[in-house]
């Protein structure tokens, strides 16, 4: 089967710093793929390169076989890619309803937009209760739900989710994953998710990539990596560098 997304050997530089050195990831239709790695590994940069936020200086990003490298973010969005960025980036001075509306403006099917809005509000009753609140007043978990709902309003084929569990209580994180997986079940949504830790995502993802220092260290099917040793090695780079400090080990996934 032809992959929906192919990230093919991309290199990204910010000034003098190289963030990605030849990263390749493929995601098939309806697959859930997760990239895990420590802070600064290049996870967010990878998603930004797909969504058009940064331009790789080498390599190519293809959607359904068509190169989209270097296109403007709004044009990539129009092709069915939507990003839920790290830190959520809610429009805080706009109401919850307006945040949702932004996601629907580029679509031409008014009825479809209205139906999606109703369905999402059904799924997320806490947003429905706060439709006319400024979105900046929502709690962190509610903002994360809004960010996902807003992205889904664009009716994407591929949803990129950057660290959905960052800074949220475990119970809320469970809810967020429930929502994401529910959207996948109903719509056949394809997901590419970044996380810092692997413990939760191993149960949800089909495949895992471990990214460290701008290089994919390990990739495999989630069920094959469940025991965790291979991931730990790839994540901390044992054998290549000095072992991680004990404190870091305790916090290990």
């Amino acid at each position: 089967m032809k992959p929906l997304l192919e990230i093919d050997q991309i290199h990204v530089r910010y000034g003098d710093m190289t963030a990605l050195r030849g990263v390749s990831i493929t995601v098939a239709e309806s697959e859930v793929v997760c990239v895990i790695g420590p802070n600064g590994a290049g996870k967010s940069t990878t998603l930004a390169a797909v969504a058009g936020g940064v331009k790789p200086f080498r390599g190519e990003v293809r959607l359904n076989g068509t190169a989209i490298t270097g296109r403007a973010p709004e044009r990539i969005a129009a092709l069915g890619v939507s990003l839920v960025p790290e830190g959520r980036h809610i429009f805080g001075s706009l109401t919850v309803d307006e945040n949702l509306a932004i996601g629907g403006y580029m679509r031409n099917d008014k009825a479809g937009v209205a139906a999606d809005r109703a369905r999402l509000l059904d799924l997320l009753p806490r947003l429905a209760e706060r439709l006319h609140y400024p979105a900046g007043r929502l709690s962190g978990g509610e903002q994360q739900m809004l960010a996902i709902a807003r992205a889904v309003m664009t009716r994407p084929r591929l949803l990129l989710v950057d660290e959905p569990s960052l800074g949220l209580a475990p119970k809320i994180v469970d809810q967020i994953y429930e929502i994401l997986l529910d959207l996948r079940r109903r719509d056949g949504l394809t997901l590419l998710i970044n996380e810092q830790s692997s413990n939760r995502i191993l149960n949800h993802a089909d495949r895992i990539h471990v990214l460290r220092a701008g290089v994919i260290q390990l990739e495999g099917r989630a069920e094959d990596l469940r025991d965790g040793d291979a991931i730990r090695h790839a994540y901390f780079g044992f054998g290549h560098q000095a072992p991680a400090a004990p404190a870091a080990l305790e916090a290990a996934p």
Binding site: A51, P73, E74, A78, S82, F91, L94, A101, I102
Partner: peptide, 21 residues
């Protein structure tokens, strides 16, 4: 107008959601 307010608050995020910059 709503798109302009969104872009004023976070231009890149608005673009990610399909707002034409």
């Amino acid at each position: 107008g709503v798109q302009m307010r969104a872009a004023a608050e976070d231009f890149r995020m608005a673009q990610y959601l399909g707002v034409r910059g």
